[in-house]
Computed example of a mutant assay.
Amino acid sequence: MAENAYYTLLTSLPHIDSLFNSRITPISRFQLDKRLSMLSTADQQRLVKIESLLHWDQLDDEVEEKALIHQAERTRAELDSQALNDLIDWRLDMRTIVAALRRKHAGQPAPTEPKWSYGSRYEYIRNHWGSATLGLGSAFPWIPKVVECLRNGECIALEKILLQAVWDHLSHMAMKHSHDFEAVVIYVLRWNLVARWTAYDTEKARVRFRSLVETSLGEFRDQLPTGPEA
């Protein structure tokens, strides 16, 4: 798809002002999908795969880990954009880190499977399980805040920290992409964050938080022993 076609699409989309100050999405999903139909068939297919992989609910701890790893590897192999592959890696590394922090908070030991999660950090995390920040506090500065929220049971604050971290990462990425396919992906993922926040239900968040801190990484919940940290 030509760059001017991406420009036409992107300029037709309403600006997404902010994340937490939004009360509704700037455009309905129905209208957004109508605008996205301007993309070529190939781009539409790529966007669907990326959005399906990185959708917030798709990255829940309850997602079957092996299926997620397979989906991520397949999606990356089909993309010709290093920037988007890097985005996938970063977002899934984030998921792995948060899941590991929840495991630690629950007093569970490090997973023992050779490849227990997708990403480039799972072996490093296993080797730094004794560190409060998994040895990644500098690379991911939001980790100490997540640890504090877990310790204090602050479910809403935790969700906001994670949403903000993704928002900031997309904003940084947007500085290098304004009129290309990557910019379209950034817009859609930002839209999803706003949709997530504006649909947020406080009581459901509390229930979800309690469930998350009691669970492990998908199927590995039943494979690993419980008890004091090793």
Rank of each mutant, 00 (worst) to 15 (best):
I143F: 03
M94A: 09
I143T: 02
I69S: 00
I161P: 00
G135N: 08
L136S: 03
Q31G: 10
G137R: 11
S40P: 11
A72T: 00
F140A: 03
R95E: 02
Q44F: 07
R76T: 10
P144Q: 10
A139Q: 15
F30A: 09
N152E: 15
K49N: 08
T96E: 05
A100T: 08
D43W: 13
T112G: 01
E123H: 13
L59P: 08
T96I: 06
P114G: 05
S37G: 11
A165R: 05
V63C: 06
Q58C: 07
G107E: 04
S52Y: 10
A100D: 04
L68Q: 04
E65C: 07
E65I: 11
F30E: 09
R103F: 07
Q108L: 11
Q45I: 13
A67E: 12
D86W: 10
T133S: 07
D60T: 13
Q108Y: 04
Y118G: 00
L36T: 11
A157W: 07
Q108W: 05
S37P: 07
E148R: 14
W129R: 01
R121G: 04
R46A: 07
L158T: 05
D57E: 11
E65D: 09
K145D: 15
Q58N: 13
H105N: 12
N152Y: 10
D43K: 15
Q82K: 11
Q71Y: 09
I125M: 08
K115M: 11
E64S: 05
R102E: 05
A77H: 06
D86L: 07
E113P: 01
D89F: 04
Q108H: 08
E73K: 12
N152V: 15
Y118S: 00
Y122F: 12
L47N: 02
K104W: 06
Q44W: 15
C155E: 03
L32K: 04
W142L: 09
Q31M: 12
V48A: 07
A132D: 14
E62I: 15
P144Y: 13
F30R: 14
P109G: 01
H55P: 02
A100G: 07
D80F: 10
A42N: 15
R102N: 05
I50G: 00
G119Q: 02
E64A: 10
A110N: 05
S117C: 13
G135V: 06
L36A: 09
A67K: 12
A67W: 13
Q164D: 01
Y124K: 08
I69W: 03
E78L: 12
L59I: 10
E73L: 14
G130L: 11
L59V: 10
R102D: 01
E73T: 09
D89C: 04
I156P: 04
A165M: 10
E159V: 01
A110G: 02
K104P: 06
S138R: 14
N152M: 09
V98F: 12
G107T: 05
H70M: 13
S40H: 15
T41G: 06
V98L: 11
D80N: 12
N85T: 10
E123A: 12
D57L: 11
L32W: 07
R103Y: 08
T41Q: 12
Q164M: 03
L68W: 02
D33E: 15
